[in-house]
Design a protein around this nucleic acid. Structure first.
Lengths: 193, 193
DNA sequence: AACGTACTACTACACGCACCGTGGTTTTTC
DNA sequence: GAAAAACCACGGTGCGTGTAGTAGTACGTT
């Protein structure tokens, strides 16, 4: 019942993210998970006692997957904190979303599921609120142009843009997303002195 | 099978929005709809041939519910196009979201469901892209401070804020959403001359 | 090198649940 | 009184769950 095969557990959690993106939170069943991970039926039951904990663990795992690696953080800190660096970082974020569409879609599904499941909501609230403050602090303490309100506005606008990009990309064909990102940075981030 | 009782059909579609918000897109079944509308089981089957069209019709209906009424548009146009008017409009939008949480949550669920169902996606893409251009044009042609890019940035930031408010409100306790809205407007919308 | 243990993978089964669609009867409405 | 809608109950079905039982494998012991 409580298997400790870590690689397989991780594989299951990765598959869970794909299932979330492909079939929604309600579609994340043990059987669907078995199928997605290409494992015999009944396997997922051996690794997670019930759906609740499966969802919770998936919620925790998704952050380890989406969180920037230390290496990336280092890269990000290398250039001088200019408006141009901000622009690059935003395009970079957008590219990451495009590359790991399933991951970000799954997070969105989990957010909605958190509406119904308090434990999922609490897990996500904690993880995301630290992500937010980290993000804002990075901007402020790193000496990037504009203050805290600039950072918040940028964060929210990029969140909105990502949701649009993930769900209804065709509603924003002109101007395209890259152009919008440039405009966002120009509008929100003060020019370098 | 094909009932023409319009009030009841409308009641069913309104109930469908609640079901979407409460149980997700996958939870929107005929039976759940019957229960939510407090109607005997089997009723919804008489009004919609299958789940696909039920979802599509719900997607269409949701916009008639969320779209601003002509009266509201008139109210909005009354004051002079100042930064302060923009601020008021944004708080107004936020209040409407808070008041009709289910409606906006349902729209979010449908967006995600659109990821899997092309017909839902197309319906939403059309409806929302006109909503966006209307919104932007209203700002630009109404002579509000800032141009098109300001309007787009404002729209996206408010979208992001609404998603946060709907799904993880506790992640944003300081500063609270009203304060953030004020800051957003101050940052994004140029001061009145 | 042979053996034994402990853990894991696989398979099958029995049960329950929720849902669908419909057919027939009652009630309403015009 | 006739047509339409509402109600109710039923058969059938597919999906998911949890578990029990069997087979396989890796590793440590003697």
């Amino acid at each position: 019942m409580a298997r400790t095969n870590h690689p397989r557990r991780r594989a299951l959690l990765d598959a869970a993210i794909d299932v979330l993106a492909d079939h929604g939170a309600r579609g994340l069943t043990f059987r669907a998970l078995d199928t997605a991970a290409a494992l015999p039926p009944g396997t997922a039951s051996n690794y997670f006692p019930d759906r609740d904990t499966l969802l919770a663990q998936t919620g925790a795992h998704i952050h380890t997957r989406l969180a920037p690696t230390p290496q990336r953080m280092a890269e990000l800190s290398t250039p001088a904190p200019t408006r141009h660096a901000v622009r690059t970082a935003m395009h970079d974020l957008f590219d990451r979303v495009s590359r790991d569409r399933s991951g970000y879609l799954a997070l969105l599904e989990l957010r909605l599921e958190g509406t119904r499941r308090p434990d999922v909501r609490h897990t996500l609230t904690h993880a995301i609120s630290t992500a937010i403050t980290d993000n804002i602090d990075f901007h402020v303490e790193g000496g990037y142009p504009g203050g805290r309100t600039t950072a918040i506005a940028l964060y929210l606008a990029m969140s909105g843009l990502i949701v649009e990009h993930l769900t209804l990309p065709d509603a924003w064909q002109n101007p395209g997303f890259p152009q919008i990102i440039d405009d966002l940075v120009d509008t929100l981030v003060p020019a370098d002195p």
